[in-house]
Structure formats: structure tokens, C-alpha cells
Simulated scan of single mutants.
Amino acid sequence: MPQNKLTLMPHGLEILLPAGAPLTDLENETSHRVIPFGCQSGACGACVIEVLDGSHSLGEMDADEREFLEDLGRTDGDFRLACQCRLTDAATVRVAEEE
């Protein structure tokens, strides 16, 4: 099965996930809690990430995710809810800093 690389900054941690895997699979792939997943359903905002490279590799953002990010004030930059993303190609992200 093809795998894609997700790079987590600022540490440069590289993790391979199967093509199309949800980012929530990170919890099974590493002993480090690299992204703080909360509800895993796009309702809590704990897993907001900033996409540094490869935003096209995380799937399309639906209207609910876009609206929730707007409610969180995450309209500038390339922010996503990690729990709503599926890795289809290489990407580089970092956990968004709290505002």
C-alpha cells in the first residue's frame, strides 16, 4: 500500500501514513502526542493545525470545517482541523499556537 509522508514542525518529525489515511491515525503510529486530538469529530478545535506545505494533500475542506475555523478566528493563514484531514500526498504542518 502506498504511503505518504507527514512532517510535523517545529521538530521535523516525519511519519509515514497509508495513502488516504485520516490524520487521527497519528495516535496509533507514534508514542508521541504530536497533535492534541480531542473529540475527533470537528467540534472541539483542539487539533487546529497550520499547513506549511501541501495543503492540497489534506483533502477538501467542507463548509462545516470552514465555518468552525471562522468561529475560532482562524481565517488568516492555512488552518485546518487535523481530525477532518486525510493525507493523500506529502504535507508539512504544525500545531497552531493558541490565540
Rank of each mutant, 00 (worst) to 15 (best):
P2M: 09
N4M: 12
N4H: 12
N4W: 02
K5R: 12
K5T: 15
T7P: 07
T7I: 09
T7L: 07
T7C: 05
T7N: 09
T7S: 09
M9C: 10
P10D: 06
G12S: 11
E14N: 10
E14T: 10
I15V: 11
I15M: 03
L16C: 13
L16T: 07
L16G: 09
L17D: 01
L17E: 00
L17R: 03
P18L: 01
P18Q: 01
A21W: 01
L23K: 03
L23Y: 01
L23Q: 02
T24Q: 06
D25Q: 09
D25P: 00
D25S: 05
D25W: 05
L26Y: 01
E27P: 00
E27Y: 01
N28V: 00
E29H: 04
T30V: 15
S31H: 13
R33T: 15
I35D: 08
F37H: 08
F37G: 10
G38Q: 03
S41Y: 03
S41I: 08
S41G: 12
S41R: 06
S41L: 06
G42F: 02
A43R: 14
A43F: 07
A43V: 15
C44F: 03
G45L: 03
A46M: 02
A46P: 00
C47H: 05
C47W: 03
V48L: 01
V48M: 00
I49Y: 04
I49S: 04
E50T: 00
L52T: 09
G54Y: 05
H56S: 08
H56A: 06
L58Q: 10
L58D: 08
M61E: 15
M61H: 11
D62H: 04
D64T: 14
D64M: 07
E65H: 14
R66E: 15
R66V: 11
E67F: 05
F68W: 07
F68A: 09
F68V: 05
L69F: 14
E70S: 13
D71K: 12
L72E: 10
R74C: 14
R74K: 14
T75N: 08
D76S: 07
D76L: 07
D78L: 12
R80N: 13
L81T: 13
L81H: 11
A82I: 07
C83G: 13
C83E: 07
C85D: 03
R86K: 10
D89I: 06
A90F: 04
A90K: 14
A90T: 15
T92R: 15
T92G: 12
V93M: 11
R94W: 01
V95T: 15
A96L: 07
A96E: 03
E97A: 14
E98T: 15
E99N: 12
E99I: 13
